[in-house]
């Protein structure tokens, strides 16, 4: 027991889906439990921050941390686990690239509060109360953690060894990652533990994807009768398969819906949004300005389309000082 490698799971600002993905190992979880000693897993086991603090530095073999970072306390926990762990894995899109909640970086605290506590149509007329960090109530003082302006990726606050991409990562990739780490055949630091090639290579529709794709039309999925047998991109739907890292086995495409890029870009790309733009521009079969504009009218939300999961990781958007990434 004492000799088993120690593993920790932790979440920061997360939807809980990454934790569910761990539970979705189903009976596989028994294999994991047999092979390792889970020292820390708040959602399922006793919480032991103090016990973690008491562990010698680097005594946890690997910590899986999901969720983005928005509160100081999350940053502190990430730092603590960093110190105690040999390897830290950013688990899931939020931790890897900021995730969907990272789209909040288009706003800040003031604008979020303004809507939520004052302007939303259901807020009672005349409601003026906004949460504050220290509040006097008749019985004493209550404290709330501060709400920050910015959502950050895990590697913007601590050093990260590996990334497990996906929103959420698949149980299979998780099991593979645990295996790789326990066997000790370590990939180079900074590796993303999923496919190295674009998603199209593992997509069942890849054979129907033309060698040279040129689009006269971009179509929005809710206005399109989808042919489930034919490459979605070839049908004009903005499937991000060609610019997304493989590893999920094309889950969304198997659901007859285009890939939205939750696995992030492939190795050589740093900025997912910029890559998406380059790609779409290269397959649009128009040269005249008016035609281009007409076609692009069906890409009305480039940020939400190409940075759906990675705005905090973008070159821009309050991320001028990001740490280097894989």
């Amino acid at each position: 027991m004492a000799d088993k490698p120690k593993v920790a799971f932790y979440w920061c600002a997360s939807c809980g889906g990454c934790e569910e993905a761990v539970v979705d190992l189903a009976e596989g979880i028994l294999d994991v439990i047999a092979a390792v000693d889970i020292v820390f897993w708040p959602v399922a086991l006793d919480f032991k921050v103090r016990d973690v603090k008491e562990l010698p530095d680097e005594s946890i073999t690997v910590s899986f941390i999901n969720g983005a970072v928005r509160l100081s306390e999350q940053e502190e926990m990430a730092r603590l686990l960093r110190r105690k762990s040999k390897f830290v894995i950013a688990f899931g899109s939020c931790s890897h690239m900021g995730g969907v909640p990272g789209l909040a970086n288009l706003w800040d605290r003031a604008s979020i509060f303004a809507w939520y506590y004052h302007d939303a149509p259901s807020v009672a007329p005349g409601n003026v109360r906004e949460p504050r960090e220290h509040v006097r109530v008749p019985e004493g003082t209550l404290e709330l953690p501060a709400f920050w302006d910015t959502v950050k990726t895990l590697d913007q606050v601590i050093d990260v060894d590996y990334y497990l991409p996906g929103c959420p990562p698949t149980p299979k990739l998780l099991a593979d990652a645990v295996g790789v780490l326990l066997r000790g055949d370590l990939p180079p630091k900074g590796s993303v533990l999923a496919g190295t090639r674009a998603l199209c290579h593992e997509c069942p529709l890849n054979e129907s994807k033309p060698e040279k794709l040129l689009l006269k039309d971009i179509r929005r999925v809710h206005l399109t009768k989808v042919d489930p047998e034919k490459c979605l991109l070839a049908q004009g739907l903005l499937c991000l398969g060609p610019v997304t890292r493989g590893g999920c086995e094309a889950l969304c495409v198997k659901g007859n819906m285009p890939c939205t890029g939750c696995f992030g870009p492939t190795d050589e790309v740093r900025d997912q949004g910029a890559k998406g733009i380059a790609y779409v521009s290269s397959i649009l079969d128009f040269d005249e300005e008016a035609d281009i504009e007409r076609a692009l009218a069906n890409v009305p939300d480039p940020v939400g389309t190409f940075y759906r999961y990675s705005l905090p990781r973008a070159y821009l958007m309050r991320t001028r000082k990001v740490m280097p990434h894989a």
């Binding site: 509160l71 288009l106 939300d301 940020v303």
Partner: peptide, 17 residues
């Protein structure tokens, strides 16, 4: 003690998303 601002960042997104 937490809030994520989904109502804000839904604005500007394609409804079908």
């Amino acid at each position: 003690p937490e809030l994520r601002g989904f109502e804000n960042f839904l604005v500007g997104r394609q409804a079908e998303d």
